[in-house]
């Protein structure tokens, strides 16, 4: 199952794969694809699954809160494993008003979610928290054109 990435790929040359997120089936597709890719790129099974979860959270947020988004995976397929795998979630919807606030479990970007609403709103408000827990590093960028990008990084040790 494990494919050894091409040995002769030049070091430092990054590959990217992008996946448009148009609906919920895209969330599943991109996350399982990302998990498989992470395995091929040398992450262990647990870490690869954690990456798949992060991709799933970011992609489902695009469906739920964002507008016209995509997930871009960037990696170095040089062998042996080196560098990192980055997951960029990009969409053109409104910015996240307060990221630090939104990252707290049980919060949306304006503060705590009313517990009575949690079941009905679909989602626990813990997605970005999971991203922060599982990724090695998370960055957020508001782009000049009004879109935004969340980047989660996974080191390949």
């Amino acid at each position: 199952m494990l494919r050894e990435p091409s040995r002769n790929a030049e070091a430092g040359r990054l590959s990217t794969k992008s996946f448009p997120i148009r609906g919920r089936s895209d969330v599943v597709t991109v996350s399982s694809h990302a998990g498989r890719l992470a395995r091929e790129l040398g992450l262990d099974a647990r870490r690869a699954m954690e990456l798949a979860i992060v991709v799933s959270e970011l992609a489902s947020n695009i469906v739920k809160h964002g507008v016209r988004g995509e997930i871009v995976l960037t990696f170095d397929d040089h062998w042996p494993p080196q560098g990192e795998i980055t997951v960029e979630a990009h969409d053109v919807g409104p910015p996240i008003r307060d990221l630090a606030l939104a990252m707290i479990d049980g919060n949306d970007d304006q503060g705590p979610i009313d517990p009575a609403l949690i079941l009905r709103r679909g989602g626990l408000g813990t997605g970005l928290g999971a991203v922060a827990r599982l990724a090695d590093r998370v960055e957020y960028r508001d782009e000049e054109d009004g879109s935004k990008t969340i980047t989660a990084r996974f080191h390949r040790r």
């Binding site: 599943v28 399982s32 998990g35 959270e57 679909g122 999971a130």
Partner: peptide, 11 residues
């Protein structure tokens, strides 16, 4: 089966 994220868990 599959990837269980917060969204799926809630559902």
């Amino acid at each position: 089966v599959g990837v269980v994220d917060s969204q799926r868990s809630a559902e």
